[in-house]
């Protein structure tokens, strides 16, 4: 495969993945509105298209057409740059996520179902997540508004605190796989279907719980959505943003939800592998062999998103000191204990 072919194939993959990802973001918003509606005993959006399915498109058009108001006292360059960082970081993470079977390869070991196969894939995702903080922090600071500033201060403190627990919770999985390559981590759990997933067979359910909590805090989602707590901070860091810039923050939030779901799927739920293992024989058709793993992957990410929305519809918001206490005094020691226990078990084995 020549360089030009490689470049063109990669470009094609990037375009397809980004389009699917953004569609996923749009329909996650609809999923949330529908589900929260049903939890609160109402219908949710149901007027535009069948079952309200065209609602995301109309929402997008609305954000485009709204008046874009930039307050006069903002720090203009940073105010304009902040949503770009937020959305950019949300979009980059998906580039290292393998979402389909590795058995189906193109010429020269070319991977169809992953943009880049990097042997430190997990670290890349963590790094990009940690850069994503700046989007929120700068948005709040550049807006020159005290609600925004308080929101962004809360967000930075919360993200830095929970990143620790998040990173530590993943160490157990990395120890078991002996690699930071997402592909190898998935293949490590592919032997006996659901029994060899890290969540069940790997005894990483404590790590999964910590990851879940930390991920809710990292994406500023309920019950840890203090940076945008509307009862005390108006809308937090994006109070002064309108039109498409607000939509970019919105998309970044839901994009991060999907990313977190992808990472959880890869690390704890066996990635693209079937939960039934070898009980169901592999289909003969080449196309089915390629599509079935993608189906399982999507299903797992979907159930993770479903859980996200369910939690949002059920739990009230924490107080800020409770949030910090929980992160530092419970999650982090628990994560360290999990690492010690996993290492001891691996050494014993």
């Amino acid at each position: 495969m020549t360089i030009l072919q490689f470049f063109l194939w990669s470009l094609l993959k990037i375009i397809v993945v980004v389009v699917v990802f953004l569609l996923g973001v749009a329909y996650t918003v609809l999923l949330e509105r529908k589900l929260v509606g049903r939890i609160q005993n109402r219908w949710g959006p149901s007027r535009v298209g069948p079952f309200g399915l065209l609602q995301p498109l109309v929402d997008g058009a609305k954000s485009f057409l709204k008046e874009d108001i930039i307050p006069s006292a903002v720090n203009r360059p940073l105010y304009l740059f902040a949503p770009v960082i937020a959305l950019g970081c949300a979009l980059i993470s998906i580039g290292v996520v393998p979402f389909g079977s590795t058995a189906v390869n193109g010429p020269g070991g070319f991977h169809f179902f992953e943009i880049a196969d990097i042997n430190i894939g997990l670290l890349v995702i963590l790094g990009i997540t940690s850069i994503g903080v700046y989007g929120i922090a700068l948005a709040g600071w550049a807006s020159n508004n005290k609600y925004s500033l308080l929101g962004s201060l809360r967000a930075s403190a919360q993200l830095v605190s929970y990143e620790l627990a998040l990173g530590l919770s993943l160490v157990g999985v990395v120890l078991r796989a002996g690699s930071l390559n997402l592909r190898e981590i998935v293949e490590n759990q592919s032997k006996h279907g659901i029994l060899s997933w890290n969540l069940f067979g790997g005894f990483q359910f404590v790590a999964f719980f910590i990851y879940l909590m930390a991920a809710y805090a990292e994406t500023n989602r309920s019950p840890f959505d203090l940076p945008e707590a509307e009862s005390e901070l108006a809308a937090g860091y994006h109070t002064e943003y309108s039109s498409m810039k607000f939509a970019m923050f919105f998309m970044a939030e839901y994009g991060n939800m999907i990313n977190v779901g992808c990472v959880a799927t890869l690390l704890f739920l066996g990635g693209w592998t079937s939960p039934f293992g070898n009980l169901i024989p592999l289909p003969q058709s080449f196309i089915l062999q390629a599509l079935l793993p993608i189906f399982w992957f999507t299903l797992k990410v979907f159930s993770f998103l479903f859980l996200y929305v369910w939690v949002r519809g059920t739990l009230p918001r924490f107080r800020y000191d409770q949030l910090m206490n929980f992160g530092w005094c419970y999650l982090m020691p628990l994560a360290i204990l999990n690492i010690v226990a996993t290492s001891l078990w691996l050494a014993y084995k």
Binding site: S130, L153, L159
Partner: peptide, 13 residues
Amino acid sequence: AGAIMVLFTFVVM
């Protein structure tokens, strides 16, 4: 970039 500088900007803000 992700941890130390976040604290820097945090303090500046």
